[in-house]
Amino acid sequence: MTSSLKVNAMFCSSILARKLFLGLMVVPLLLGCTGTEVPDDLTDETITLALNWYPDSQHGGFYAAEHFGFFQDEGLQVQIEPGGPGAPVVQNVALGRVAFGVGNADQILLAREQQIPLVALMASMQNSPRCLMVHQESGITSFEQLKGIKLALGAGKSFAKFLSQDGVLKDVQVVPYTGSVAPFLADTQFGQQAYVFSEPYVVEQRGAHPVCLMVSDLGFNPYSSILFTNEELLQEKPEVVAKIVRAVRRGWLAYLNDPEPVNQKIQKDNPEMNLEALSYGAKAIADLCLPAGLAKAEIGTMTDARWDDLKQQLTEIELVSKDLSPDQSYSLQFLQPLETSP
């Protein structure tokens, strides 16, 4: 397998999403039998933070908190647990097997719909990295021009259901997303779902000229790379939660300022990811983490309005019920402005 294809494999998360959805069906049953528990690892002074995928730039702030000693500054010993296809992050956090996990805002609300007591604590990315990737040769530069091509999308994805309801897909032929960029590379009239920090780099290395249409520009914009925990841990160990959140927020500021030493650590945990790809990713997510108008001291922030909007959108595409209250799905209590250097 070539290096670029190996990098591509790191980003193919559709299989993970399908397995995660199936897992969400099972967790409420397990919770009903066992109840949620505060993870044992907290009593042993080692806290596990479970990633939602193989380590890459979307996890840079978590690794920076470790690399620069911010966890240690808080008196914490944190173990970062890499993810991968089928990694049961939601299930393990819900059941108290690990203390903290990484995911996206729509996943948290989908879990809450299934009575899984997860709570989002901070949002690494204010704007979603989700995009539709098309060829420059297609002449498509906007969603209004999205016509006459094949478009690979993952079945059941919340963003795909939103696009369908919004009418964006009416003039394209939707085909199953296989997790590979090979069909894209073979046909300039082919597009696919992507993350702006990943697949564009892969196809550029193979000679393609991608154009990324950001789904957030249409208004569907779930917070991404969220740090979350379970409700019981939040209630019983708020001081630990506060320390973790503070360290990770500092980590994100450090990573955005100087990603290269952290990327070397990420590569050690994920040797299939080369440093050039990680550098590309760090640059791509910088404006997603700190968009124009957001002060550095506000890194990781969330708002009630954004969560309310997302809940309404998921209700409209029939993924959550109208009775679901998003209030318990997140906590803003640890998001006071950080002290930052001038």
Rank of each mutant, 00 (worst) to 15 (best):
F70L: 01
A305H: 11
S3E: 14
T301R: 12
K268C: 11
L76K: 00
Q205V: 07
E204C: 07
F334M: 13
V203P: 06
Q312W: 06
Q145H: 01
S3C: 06
P326G: 09
T188V: 11
P222F: 02
D171M: 00
P85F: 00
N270Q: 12
E260M: 13
S216W: 03
Q79G: 04
A194R: 10
R18L: 08
Y177D: 14
Q107N: 09
E232P: 00
A295Q: 15
P210D: 10
P261Y: 11
E113Y: 00
G84E: 01
R306P: 01
R130F: 05
V89I: 13
A152W: 06
L314R: 09
C212M: 10
L146M: 01
V262I: 14
Q58W: 01
D287W: 09
V202Y: 13
P117Y: 03
L314K: 08
P55G: 05
N274W: 06
E204T: 15
P261H: 06
L253V: 10
S325A: 14
Q115G: 03
V262P: 07
S4L: 09
D44Q: 15
Q115D: 14
Q235W: 00
A9S: 12
A160Q: 12
L95Q: 08
G103E: 02
D258Q: 14
E81I: 02
P183L: 04
V320Y: 12
L49F: 13
G154K: 03
G23D: 09
P85Q: 02
D166H: 15
H135V: 04
M125G: 00
M10K: 01
Y54S: 07
V248R: 10
E144V: 00
L275T: 04
D171F: 07
G156D: 10
V175D: 01
A295S: 14
M1T: 13
S142W: 10
M214N: 14
D323S: 15
S158Y: 00
V245R: 11
I80D: 02
A208K: 08
D44F: 01
S4Q: 08
R249D: 03
R97S: 03
D269N: 08
L332H: 13
E199W: 06
G103N: 02
F334Y: 15
Y201F: 15
A292K: 11
L121V: 05
Q91N: 03
L30G: 01
P337K: 12
A305P: 00
S128M: 00
V211K: 08
G61T: 10
A247H: 02
Q107V: 08
N8I: 04
A194I: 07
D166Q: 15
A208E: 09
I317S: 03
L253Q: 11
G69F: 08
